[in-house]
């Protein structure tokens, strides 16, 4: 199952709910304001990192780029950035674009 979250974890509880419901091996894709949660030092980052043991965590590249990437360090390697997901209306996830 692919879960897509677009709300900031420091404003709403959608990410937390999602992590609670997501079954082992599922993918969670963070887009729009949800990408803030995956930045170093954000109060929600630890929760996602813990969840990354059982889930595959992705974040949308262009949304991450809008967030100045001072945080992207080796310690964030549990997350994979996705360059672009939507091809027309079909949600296909193009995987494996690691951050550099």
């Amino acid at each position: 199952m692919l879960h897509i979250v677009n709300k900031s974890a420091t404003e709403r509880s959608t990410l937390e709910s999602c992590l609670r419901m997501a079954t082992k091996g599922s993918a969670v894709l963070l887009i729009e304001d949800a990408v803030y949660a995956a930045t170093n030092g954000n109060a929600a980052a630890a929760k996602i990192q813990a969840a990354a043991a059982d889930l595959k965590i992705y974040a949308l590249g262009p949304d991450l780029a809008a967030w100045p990437g001072a945080c992207w360090t080796e310690s964030m390697s549990w997350i994979t950035a996705v360059l672009w997901i939507w091809s027309q209306s079909t949600a296909t996830v193009s995987l494996g674009c690691n951050l550099n």
Binding site: S8, T10, E11, D33, Y36, G61, P62, D63, A65, A66, W67, P68, G69, A70
Partner: peptide
């Protein structure tokens, strides 16, 4: 305050999200 702080971040690049 709260997420409003993100409005003031240095080095924002919005080309990819076209806003």
């Amino acid at each position: 305050t709260d997420d409003g702080i993100y409005q003031l971040m240095k080095g924002i690049d919005t080309k990819g999200i076209e806003v």
